[in-house]
């Protein structure tokens, strides 16, 4: 360690649970309002105003849930692994709590993506489940989430649980591209190319603008859910500290 370099100040502030608690209580209302507005707007737009797909008709409207959920489930895993790495390297408490909070949220969002994919499959492909490459990799992503979550809950010591979860999610992060590639490759081998519907036709703006609104809405929702979970986690772990005691007394 010849060279000692410093990260910017805000990076270290992030490590303070109290600072995170304060700043998140200020940010939460904004994100909550944005999430509600965007999700309501996007859902109404997608359900009632977007034109139906010329091939799939109205079942196409499921895309406004399915795609944002799938995108969010993947970014949530990235965040979990990155937060885990930060907590491993800089021993940052908040990063550890963020990583822990990501797992249940990500798992439920992955379930949402899978469920909507299956329901969408019924009118489109005529079957609830098709071993489509994207559905299969989403299923494996769900398995990875469940693994991290189970590992977290199996270890009693919070610090060790966080570190073990971080190692596992990093291993998963290295694996995700390999899994994705292998599943796609496997899919082309096994699946007769009858389902050309998975090849998205060029979407008109009336279709993709609400989709964009929904994706941003889902991210805002994720920020809210993550902050809420992390805040609860902070309270539970810092319950001996004076500022949490003051919060309790103030109630």
């Amino acid at each position: 360690m010849a060279k000692s370099w410093k990260m910017p100040k805000w990076f270290y502030q992030l490590g303070s649970p109290r600072w995170f608690y304060d700043i998140s209580s200020r940010l939460l209302p904004w994100f909550a309002v944005a999430a509600v507005l965007l999700l309501v707007l996007g859902a109404a737009w997608g359900l009632a105003f977007a034109p139906p797909d010329y091939q799939q008709g109205n079942s196409f409207r499921i895309i406004y849930i399915h795609v944002p959920a799938a995108v969010l489930a993947q970014s949530c895993y990235m965040l979990m692994a990155v937060a885990g790495a930060i907590s491993l390297i800089w021993k940052m408490k908040v990063a550890d709590m963020v990583a822990k909070s990501c797992a249940p949220i990500g798992a439920t969002i992955a379930i949402l993506a899978l469920a909507t994919g299956a329901i969408w499959g019924k009118p489109t492909w005529g079957a609830w489940w098709v071993w489509d490459a994207r559905l299969t990799s989403m299923l494996i992503l769900l398995f990875l989430y469940i693994g991290v979550y189970t590992l977290h809950s199996a270890i009693d010591n919070e610090v060790n649980a966080g570190q073990a979860g971080a190692v596992l999610s990093l291993v998963g992060l290295v694996n995700i591209p390999i899994i994705k590639y292998s599943v796609e490759w496997w899919n082309t081998l096994h699946q007769p190319a009858t389902f050309t519907i998975t090849e998205k036709p060029k979407m008109v703006p009336e279709m993709w603008v609400p989709l964009l609104v929904m994706v941003i809405g889902f991210y805002c929702f994720f920020a809210v859910a993550l902050m809420l979970r992390t805040r609860t986690e902070i309270l539970q772990r810092e319950k001996r500290s004076s500022w949490v005691q003051q919060l309790v007394e103030g109630k």
Binding site: L47, R61, I62, A69, L112, T116, I119, W120
Partner: peptide, 9 residues
């Protein structure tokens, strides 16, 4: 199908 999806979501 569509409404079930939105309900689950």
């Amino acid at each position: 199908y569509v409404w079930t999806c939105y309900a689950i979501a």
